[in-house]
Design a protein around this nucleic acid. Structure first.
Length: 476
RNA sequence: CGCGGGGUAGAGGAGAGGCACCUCGGGAGGCUCAUAACCUCCAGACCCCGGUUCGAUUCCGGGCCCCGCAACCA
């Protein structure tokens, strides 16, 4: 007798200084697929998404555009939220770091870290570039000058609060020595090496005179929190921590299994800093942190100057929601970097969705509609067998589905039910029933990946009717 | 010796100690239920040099070549 363990899954909050990009879309779709998979197994699931809204970049951008900070972040928050319908995301809560409850949680996190003796004040001497309005470190500089402004940064001294990250070195080494804490394994080892190299304490505040768009530091009117310290707390503030009126925090974080998804640029923050913060306030570490790669295009990082940027909204517009999910899950590697181009996406869309799944559905359902007197009775399945999904192998599961699709096309070509129907109708009908049942299996296994498409196919089977084309052919 | 990832048919990708798979492309047939779709067959590949092994493209060492990261840039 084993009780089901509640499952918590969260994406990393995108920072709202730019519109959501492909990397975000990938992470959201991966998370959504897992959340749907668990729900299908009747697990209790909490799926978190949101936006990180404080910090210098946001305040500067808002100022440049001449809008209030709040208006600025509102605009981007709604952009990210729109992905919910564009990508059919089933998140349970959308947290914003400007939410009052979140800010209070961040302040409570600060107080508890402070109470644990992990926060102290120290003079920080840094090289400050006036043009960037930011501190620079040596490695940022080219020949002692800011690469963006070609000026020498000034030595500036300011008092900051610091978090004793160094104190958690041993704890983090233990955390990272645990198989499965960070996936894939080589990322865990990479992070372990990094921690073993020594940790420095972390500046976690900014003087308001320099930057005031942040959560106020408790008990000090002159400082706001460094954006990271505030933002990381979202993973538990979204569950109602610290008050936990609804018991979600205790159910999903303390008693549940927690999973964070993050990009490879996030390892330091999610794996090192956040885990140290949790330890500081005596909370459970994240059970698993799954790190995905980046999506490049034409062999390079996407960038405006190269003109190779692919925007997730454009994808949805061109191919549709489910096809976009399909591309993210099957043609982007779950953990390694991947390369996408419009040419390649057109290719896989046409080959596998239009000619593959779409066409197969049409030919089977046309035969069923024409030759079967009544719909094939189907029983709704409530579970899904996909061991590989538990190991985040989205591609592998989908490869299996498409292998089955190929096998069905072969079956039709070999057995020719459309021909047999003229001479041996009963035998042909049996074949068609078998095909419809196989198609149902395909649809069932697609539910978590391509929910709408799966639904359309199942509906067609129930009505014994050939549906409209699942995927429109691209115009030449 | 800073850390790490990788080099698979014409192209783009998976993969794994023992028939090297998928998509596109090329060549030859077939079928007509289907969205000018589908099926079959053919040509075509595991960077180089060592080692371990009965056997390596897959493990180990070296070489050459690509590519990320190098801490507060969220």
């Amino acid at each position: 007798m084993s009780e089901k363990i509640p499952k918590y899954i969260t994406t990393t909050l995108p920072y709202v200084n730019a519109s959501p990009h492909m990397g975000h879309a990938l992470e959201f779709v991966q998370a959504d697929t897992l959340a749907r998979f668990w729900r299908l197994q009747d697990e209790d699931v909490f799926f978190n998404m949101g936006v990180d809204e404080h910090g210098q970049k946001v305040s500067r951008k808002a100022d440049e555009e001449g809008v209030s900070r709040q208006n600025y972040v509102d605009k981007y928050a709604s952009e990210v939220k729109e992905l919910k319908s564009a990508l059919n995301l089933s998140y349970d809560n959308f947290i914003r770091t400007t939410d009052t409850a979140h800010k209070e949680a961040a302040q409570e996190m600060w107080r508890r870290c402070d109470a644990a003796g992990d926060i102290y004040k120290k003079k920080y001497t840094g090289l400050y570039c006036v043009g960037c309005e930011a501190f620079k470190i040596d490695t940022d500089l080219v020949e002692g000058k800011c690469p963006d402004h070609k000026t020498e940064p000034e030595g500036v001294e300011e008092e900051n609060y610091f978090f004793r990250l160094s104190k958690y070195q041993t704890f983090l080494e233990e955390f990272l020595s645990k198989e499965g804490s960070v996936l894939p394994n080589w990322r865990r080892q990479e992070a372990l090496k990094f921690v073993q190299g020594g940790l420095e304490d972390l500046s976690i505040s900014r003087e308001k005179s320099r930057m005031d768009w942040g959560v106020e530091v408790p008990g000090d009117d002159n400082h706001v929190m460094y954006v990271w310290f505030d933002a990381l707390t979202n993973y538990i503030s979204t569950l109602g921590w610290p008050k936990d009126f609804e018991g979600k925090f205790s159910k999903f974080w303390e008693q549940g299994e927690t999973l964070q998804l993050a990009g490879k640029d996030q390892v330091r923050f999610q794996v090192v800093i956040w885990q140290a913060m949790l330890k500081s306030v005596n909370l459970k570490a994240t059970d698993t942190i799954f790190i995905h790669g980046f999506i490049n295009s034409e062999g390079h990082k996407m960038s405006k100057s190269l003109g190779n940027v692919i925007d997730p909204y454009e994808l949805v517009k061109k191919y549709g929601t489910d096809a976009t999910r399909y591309i993210m899950l099957r043609h982007v590697h779950p953990v390694d970097d991947s390369d996408l181009t419009w040419e390649k996406m057109d290719e896989v869309y046409t080959a596998n969705l239009v000619n593959g799944l779409g066409n197969l559905t049409a030919r089977i359902m046309k035969m069923a509609e024409t030759h079967l007197e009544s719909p094939v009775t189907v029983t709704d399945k409530t579970t899904m067998d996909a061991e590989a999904l538990k190991h985040y192998q989205f591609q592998a599961v989908m490869d299996g589905i498409w292998a089955a699709i190929g096998a069905m096309d072969e079956y039709i070509a070999e057995n020719e039910p459309f021909k047999v129907i003229k001479t041996e109708p009963e035998q042909a009908k049996e074949m068609i029933v078998k095909l419809v049942k196989d198609l149902q299996e395909i649809a069932e296994s697609l539910v978590v990946f391509m929910p709408q498409t799966a639904e359309t196919i199942l509906q067609a089977i129930k009505e014994n009717k050939k549906p409209e084309n699942l995927f429109a052919r691209l115009e030449k």
